[in-house]
Simulated scan of single mutants.
Amino acid sequence: MYRWCTDEVEPHDRFDFWREVRAKGLFGVTAELERERRADFFGEFSMRQLGNGTLVELKASSYAVERSQADIGRAPGDSICVYQQLGGGGWFGGMRSSDFAIANGSFATSHTDLPYRTKPLGTGGFHLRILKIPVSGLAPQDKRMRELAPKMFNDSGLAPLLDACFADLGEVAVSDGSSEAAPLVQALGHLALIERGLVRPGSRRGQGALRTARLSLARRLIARHLQDPDLAPTQVADLLGVSVRHLHMLFEAADRSFSQTVTEERLKQSRRLMREAPERLIADIASACGFESLATYYRVFNAAYGMAPGDFRARASEAR
C-alpha cells in the first residue's frame, strides 16, 4: 500500500505539490484553490492495487477539482469508478447529466474519461474512497460503459451491499489479504453496472455479485449482533432480506457454515477483549460475546485453540 501526506512537504509548497504531482500527475485531474487559502491546505491518501482494481482513500481540505477534456487526453483511464462518500458531502457537475450532491455514506459511479467538476459541500473538505476498475477487467464488454457520466446510486437496496463490500475491501487492503480482493472488486464493479442498467440482477454476473455482497453483509450483521446468545439464521436472513435457505447457501459456498462463522467470530472477539481488557472477568467476556454459558465458552475455546481462555490471557500478558 502506498501512503502519502502533505506533511512531507514544506507548508508553502503543499498545495502546489498536491496540484502538480498528485492531482495532475497521479489522478489526472486539475485542482484549484484560492491563493490566500493555500497555506492551510492539508491532504493525504492511500492507494493499493487489489485484484484488477485500485482502491484509493483520500482526505483533504476543501478545494475544487475538474477532470477536463485536456486532462482526459493527457491521462486517459478507461475505467469504471465507484465512489463512497465517507465524510460531509460532495457536489458533482459540469457534465452531460444533471448536477447532483452526494451525502455522507452514499455512493456514485462514473467512467473515468468523461468530464466533470466536483468539490466538497461545506468546509469539511474531501473524505472518500474510490475504486477504479479497468473496463477490460469487467464483463460484458459494453460500449455503454464509456458513456457513464457521474451519477449517484438511487437503488437504496444496493447501498448496504456496497457498504459491506467496501468495508471488507478496506480490511483486505490493511491485512494484505490480496487473494480475497478479486471477488470483492468484481462484485463492486458489477453492482455498479446493475445500478446503471448494464448488468441484469438475474444474470450469471449479477447473481455472482449479489452473492458475494450478501455474504459480506451477512458476516457484518453477525458481528453486529454477536452479543445476542439467541442469534439465529432467521434473524440474519430477515435483516438481509433473503430466505433462510438462501442464507445457508451463501455460507456453504464460502466453505464455512453459518453456525461455524458465528462461533469463530465470537472466539475472535473474546480473544481481542482479553488482550484489550486484561482485568475484565472471563465470565463477563464470554457473556459479551454471546456464549450461552461459561462452560460452553471454555469448551469451545479449548477445542479451537488447545488451551483454556485463562492460559491464552496469561500468554498474551507475557508477550506485552
Rank of each mutant, 00 (worst) to 15 (best):
R315M: 05
G77D: 04
G25I: 08
L250Y: 12
Q235N: 01
S106F: 02
A64N: 13
R48P: 00
E264C: 09
R204P: 00
L158N: 04
R256H: 14
E195T: 03
P278R: 00
V199C: 08
S110Q: 11
K59A: 15
V199T: 12
R313Q: 13
E147S: 12
S79W: 03
A253E: 13
T109K: 07
N104Y: 04
S98Y: 03
S79D: 13
G125L: 14
V300R: 13
E318Q: 11
R200S: 15
S110L: 15
L148Q: 12
Y83W: 11
I102P: 00
T109A: 13
G89N: 02
K132P: 04
G241W: 13
I222L: 09
E57A: 07
L162G: 00
T296S: 15
L128P: 02
K119I: 04
D113Q: 10
S156I: 08
A319D: 10
T234I: 10
E44N: 11
R129L: 14
F27D: 09
R37L: 14
Q235L: 15
G87I: 02
A277W: 03
I194D: 12
R256L: 15
L86V: 01
L294M: 08
V242L: 10
R245M: 09
Q84C: 04
I72M: 06
E34T: 09
S257K: 12
A31C: 03
F126M: 04
E34H: 09
A232G: 06
C289Y: 06
L247I: 11
M274R: 07
Y63E: 08
F153V: 04
V236E: 07
K268G: 12
L50W: 04
L128E: 12
V174G: 02
S257F: 15
D113M: 10
A314G: 00
V135N: 15
S175C: 07
P309W: 06
A213M: 08
M249K: 12
G306K: 01
G88H: 04
G43N: 07
D40H: 13
P115N: 07
L184A: 05
D228I: 03
E279D: 06
G306D: 01
F42M: 11
Q49E: 11
A181F: 03
A39P: 00
K24I: 00
V199E: 08
S79V: 09
L26W: 04
L198D: 05
E318N: 07
D255I: 05
D155K: 05
R205W: 10
E36I: 08
G290P: 05
K132D: 13
Q260E: 15
T234H: 13
S97Q: 09
V185K: 03
A173M: 04
Q49T: 13
R3I: 02
G25A: 09
S257G: 15
S178Y: 06
R256S: 14
I72F: 02
M47F: 06
G73E: 14
V236G: 11
Y2V: 06
P120V: 08
E44D: 11
C289L: 01
A303L: 04
A295D: 13
A288N: 07
L26Y: 02
R48D: 12
Q186A: 09
Q207T: 15
N104H: 10
H248S: 12
A213K: 03
G105T: 01
C289H: 04
L215W: 11
L55A: 07
F126E: 14
S175Q: 08
G28Q: 02
H246L: 11
L267C: 06
V262M: 03
P229F: 10
P160E: 10
V29W: 00
A304Q: 07
R313C: 02
E32W: 05
R35K: 12
